[in-house]
């Protein structure tokens, strides 16, 4: 596993790359403390840590921070506040309600608009590093599906670093996600999580 630090030289020649790399005088450097991934002719640096920046179509887990006449202001675990219109919605929102929603607009002035809410009652919300959320979901949602099957819990994963879990075995699911958070970068994770859940089920 190749860990790179900010300002570290990645390539002296032109490469196809992602947002984790910047160029200066024709050379390419890492912009983050992250992992270097080179595949075919694509070189990417993926940051190991970072804040959640909302993008359109992200599903996020929100907390109602303020209720206004025609909408709610929501805390979406981002430096930017989010707003959702509730005039036409049949759902009534109150302070501190938890709900899942989709980001429908995230413009350059950092005004975030949400819609398609689903109120979440009961269960528990856990925090999870936003950049590692893809690991929690897994390829084709394989990881989260496995956890749902082995714990019988309802689970909704928010791209904003929050996971809602509801069910009798929610603490088991919680532990599984804690494991993923700590070991996201180590290969063979899915099997380890499966083993751990199966062992716990036997107890």
């Amino acid at each position: 596993m190749n860990i790179v630090t900010p300002g570290e030289l990645i390539s002296e020649e032109q490469i196809k790359t992602n947002q984790g790399v910047f160029s200066r005088h024709g050379k390419f450097y890492s912009k983050f403390y992250g992992i270097l991934n080179s595949r075919n002719d694509f070189t990417a640096v993926n940051a190991l840590n970072g804040v959640y920046l909302p993008k359109r179509e992200d599903v996020v887990i929100c907390f109602v921070e303020d209720v206004k006449f025609s909408g709610v202001v929501a805390d979406i675990n981002s430096p930017y506040q989010a707003y959702m219109q509730t005039k036409d919605s049949r759902i009534r929102f109150e302070m501190h309600n938890v709900f899942a929603a989709t980001v429908i607009d995230a413009d350059s002035s950092q005004n975030i608009l949400l819609d398609y809410p689903e109120k979440l009652t009961g269960g528990t919300v856990i925090r999870f590093p936003p950049l590692k959320i893809p690991r929690a979901i897994g390829r084709n949602a394989s990881m989260v599906k496995m956890i749902k099957d082995l714990t019988g819990c309802k689970i909704i994963i928010g791209k904003n670093g929050r996971i809602w879990i509801n069910g009798e075995n929610q603490n088991l699911a919680k532990k599984a996600f804690e494991m993923i958070s700590k070991q996201a970068h180590i290969p063979g994770l899915t099997e380890r999580v499966r083993k751990s859940l199966e062992e716990n089920n036997q107890n």
């Binding site: 907390f63 921070e65 675990n77 501190h96 009961g122 528990t124 919300v125 925090r127 929610q170 603490n171």
Partner: peptide, 23 residues
């Protein structure tokens, strides 16, 4: 602070665990 809201929301599930004698 944003964190305050997180604890407000955590309280219900924490209470549920404590009612089962679990820390």
């Amino acid at each position: 602070s944003k964190t305050n809201l997180y604890w407000v929301i955590k309280k219900d599930s924490l209470l549920a665990d404590l009612s089962h004698g679990k820390r």
